[in-house]
């Protein structure tokens, strides 16, 4: 029992330390908004006019924004890899390992901080979405549920990136290693365009991979255009990713 209460308190202490850095170096937060904002601009105003949602009464901006949110939440998980790789590089993880703290809390605190940040950034993007004409078609509670669903998905990805961060030498490598994982998730998906126009093999992937499932779940919650089954599908994906990657990351941390 003492072990668990230490895990909780150590996780909070570590999360707070990681979030402090975000306040000290606000550029980090700003940078994480630049990419999704660029995508909003490109897809909403440049390509958007040429893309059909294929669903009557569904405007492209409404179709697009849940995809943008997910892109934001997913790319946000990179900071887990970068943060851990930097801490390792600076010898900080070494010091933490010599302390009588909960070892899982080192990763737990990192993921908690990044998940919190992810949630904040998604809310900011939601507000930006409203500014460019995004409309939710459901209740406030369902919109909040959508934000939570995305944050859970982002948090699951954080565990994947924790494993990556602990496996590479430094922050830059972590950054470079992240892209090949995120690209097929975010771009080969239903986030920006309906997969119906893609070649069959790609459409097959883009219809059912974890990020697409979550986008559908969010559309179900915020727009009501998809079945609520996708909400459960997304939760299952997130759970599966965590169940696989959290133990792998923790083991990696213990053994490295």
């Amino acid at each position: 029992m003492k072990g668990f209460s230490h895990f909780v308190s150590d996780t909070l202490v570590m999360a707070r330390r990681n979030l402090t850095m975000l306040v000290r170096v606000p550029q980090l937060l700003v940078f994480s908004l630049v990419q999704p904002m660029l995508f909003v601009f490109m897809f909403r105003y440049v390509f958007g006019g040429a893309i059909s949602t294929g669903q009557a009464g569904l405007s492209y901006v409404d179709y697009l924004m849940p995809g943008i949110f997910l892109q934001t939440a997913s790319f946000g998980a990179i900071s887990t890899a970068v943060g851990l790789a930097e801490d390792k590089n600076k010898g900080l993880l070494e010091r933490l390992k010599s302390l009588p703290m909960s070892r899982s809390a080192v990763l737990g605190g990192r993921v908690l901080a990044d998940t919190t940040r992810d949630g904040v950034v998604v809310v900011v993007m939601l507000l930006i979405g409203f500014a460019v004409g995004f409309n939710t078609h459901t209740s406030f509670a369902r919109v909040v549920a959508g934000i939570i669903l995305m944050t859970i998905f982002g948090s699951a990805l954080c565990w994947v990136f924790a494993l990556i961060g602990l496996s590479v030498a430094n922050g830059e490598t972590a950054q470079a290693a992240a892209f090949p994982i995120l690209a097929p998730l975010t771009f080969a998906s239903n986030a920006f365009v309906p997969p119906s126009t893609m070649p069959d093999w790609l459409a097959w992937w883009a219809e059912r991979q974890p990020l697409s499932t979550t986008v559908r779940g969010v559309r179900a919650l915020m727009l009501g255009t998809e079945s609520s089954d996708y909400v459960w599908g997304s939760l299952l994906w997130s759970l599966a990713i965590m169940v696989v990657f959290a133990p792998l990351a923790i083991r990696r941390f213990r053994n490295s």
């Binding site: 330390r17 402090t20 850095m21 000290r24 170096v25 600076k90 010898g91 900080l92 070494e94 010091r95 010599s98």
Partner: peptide
Amino acid sequence: GLAGQFAAVDENL
């Protein structure tokens, strides 16, 4: 207590 080969302190704190 352990003081490693490289000062393991957090630069941003």
